[in-house]
């Protein structure tokens, strides 16, 4: 429903675009530097708050928890969502298409998917985190425990006592 928040959102948008012209350097744990637009970096709430707190934009931001390969992929997402508009139906559809392809590619490499999930969590990139966790949840959905173990490579290590407990709970639910 239409509310008065539209004007505020537009003002925030304008501000973001203005500040988005600056460039920011993100450094992976291997010391590799990635230069991104501020609009792209602001997709991360962690970096956004550091920038807004007057952090060292010029010196760049070292990210000791993220390796280069993961950071490159995360930046790919942030560039798309930070630098492109999402006002019209077509623009939103293009972003949705990007997300779909992006996650499909990640899903084929589970270990990398977890790395990106961890990075999205650490950098507080809400959209990316929702995308990757939903993808993992979708893999679990509708599968038997054995199928889930196979899909994720989980080793079965329950003891007889654990199994007994589960059985007991099962009779309740």
């Amino acid at each position: 429903m239409a509310t008065g928040s539209g004007a505020a959102a537009a003002a925030a948008d304008a501000e973001e675009k203005e500040s988005g012209s600056r460039m920011i350097t993100l450094t992976s744990n291997e010391g590799k530097a990635f230069v991104v637009t501020e609009a792209s970096a602001r997709q991360s709430a962690t970096i956004r708050s550091m920038v807004d707190d007057g952090g060292c934009v010029d010196k760049g931001f070292p990210l000791p928890n993220v390796d280069s390969k993961t950071l490159a992929r995360v930046i790919q997402y942030c560039d798309e969502h930070g630098n492109k508009e999402a006002h019209t139906v077509d623009e939103r559809a293009a972003l949705a298409k990007f997300d779909k392809d992006f996650i499909a590619e990640l899903d084929a490499d589970k270990a990398f998917l977890y790395d990106v999930t961890m990075a999205a969590n650490y950098l507080h990139i809400q959209g990316l985190f929702a995308l990757t966790t939903q993808c993992i949840a979708d893999t679990i959905k509708g599968k038997t425990p054995e199928e889930i173990r196979t899909a994720f490579g989980i080793e079965y290590d329950l003891t007889a006592q654990d199994e007994e407990e589960i059985k007991e709970e099962d009779t309740h639910a």
Partner: peptide, 29 residues
């Protein structure tokens, strides 16, 4: 490696499932 994800991330994944499905994952390991 999914086990390398911390509890809070795994829990956020489980919260995207309906409860019976989330409970069923307790038998994984």
């Amino acid at each position: 490696r999914i086990n390398a994800l911390p509890d809070d991330i795994l829990l956020q994944i489980l919260e995207r499932l309906d409860l019976p499905m989330a409970i069923r994952t307790s038998t994984l390991s």
